[in-house]
């Protein structure tokens, strides 16, 4: 640290902990994730299929419950991608997020909404919009968000 920084700045490092409630639908989601199933919620009025599941259909303004949860395919179609190539502190861990990593937006088969996730490809020329992707599960699932560490690109010949 240079003299000027020493004189002109105060360092402040606070670890500000929280424990967030996730709601009943997410509890069910993680239960099923352990069985390698991906669950969303379906609005009982307009039939819109939401991923992630949540308790409110914003369009109909009515409630969805655990009974309204349905399973989605682990496969989906890519609508956009990027390769993140910049450093930052990851608030999930407090450490630097390793980079580069692939990052996609896609719609799971059966869902009406999109989702974002890591993709195991860091060469942007290897991605194609419209390409099929699939969730990769950890061998031993634990019922948490990291059970799906990333999605993989499905090669055309596989389909």
């Amino acid at each position: 640290m240079g003299k000027k920084e020493k004189e002109f700045q105060i360092k402040w490092k606070t670890d500000l902990p929280y424990r967030y409630s996730i709601g009943k639908l997410a509890v069910k989601y993680f239960e099923e994730l352990k069985n390698k199933k991906i669950m969303g919620s379906k609005c009982p009025k307009c039939d819109k299929r939401y991923m992630p599941p949540r308790a409110v259909c914003a369009n109909c303004f009515i409630e969805m419950t655990v009974e309204d949860m349905i399973e989605f395919s682990p496969k989906g179609t890519l609508v956009g991608f990027t390769v993140v190539n910049y450093p930052f502190i990851d608030p999930n861990t407090g450490g630097m997020r390793p980079f580069p990593y692939g990052y996609g937006i896609f719609k799971l088969d059966g869902a009406d909404t999109y989702m974002m996730h890591f993709v195991d490809e860091t060469d942007h020329t290897k991605f194609k919009i419209g390409q099929r992707v699939e969730a990769v599960f950890k061998e031993k699932t634990e019922g948490d968000i990291y059970d799906i560490p990333y999605f993989r690109l499905i090669k055309e010949e596989e389909e």
């Binding site: 990851d90 608030p91 990052y103 968000i145």
Partner: peptide, 29 residues
């Protein structure tokens, strides 16, 4: 880091890369 915490702690934060990641996806689409 601050922008990442604007997003849902369960569903979005684990994979989000601040504002630029999503903006890159938007540009790509």
């Amino acid at each position: 880091t601050g922008i990442i915490t604007a997003f849902d702690p369960v569903w979005e934060r684990p994979s989000l890369a601040g504002a630029l990641g999503p903006l890159a996806l938007m540009a790509n689409i």
